[in-house]
Amino acid sequence: MSPDLSAALTGLLGTDSVVNCGMIVPNNLHLPLATLLRDRGYTCYVTVCASHWPAQPALKGAPATEEHFEVATVLRDPTRRDAAHPDGSQTFSWRVSLAPGEAIASLTSLFAGADWQEREQYDLVGVHFAGHPDLRRLMMDEDWPGHPLRRDYAIDTPHAPWR
């Protein structure tokens, strides 16, 4: 990691220890972090992935957890790594933990490709992206009840008249 990126990350997050998908970022720092990385060469929006975590009791020493959602974002520096681009060909990913009903900032203002990706996550998991210009369902019908990839969605949920 280049020194100036390290310094910028430390200034924003308080640390520059980056582990892929291991770092949970506060919700209010999601958009500043993405902006910072985009301005330093991470211009390729790879993916966004939301997951649903239902409430878990304490088990085998692990503490009990409340129901929450996690949104992982992956950015990539598409340039070749050389002296001018010390971060070239590297990916950077982080997670944001959300309470049920909490919205996360949309990245469509930074990456046009985030549009349909965030629509898909909204459709299947039910995470709301604040600031998205057209947050409609992408895969299921417009009138589909519920969000199918939540853990509490029954796999054989009937949907008349086709099921």
């Binding site: 019908d141 417009e142 009138d143 009840p145 009937p158 949907h159 008349a160 008249p161 099921r163």
Partner: peptide, 19 residues
């Protein structure tokens, strides 16, 4: 896809032999 059948219309016949 904006003028799809409304969900209420589908639910109105939802008591079909389904389930």
């Amino acid at each position: 896809g904006r003028e799809l059948h409304s969900h209420e219309q589908v639910v109105a016949v939802g008591n079909l032999a389904i389930g």
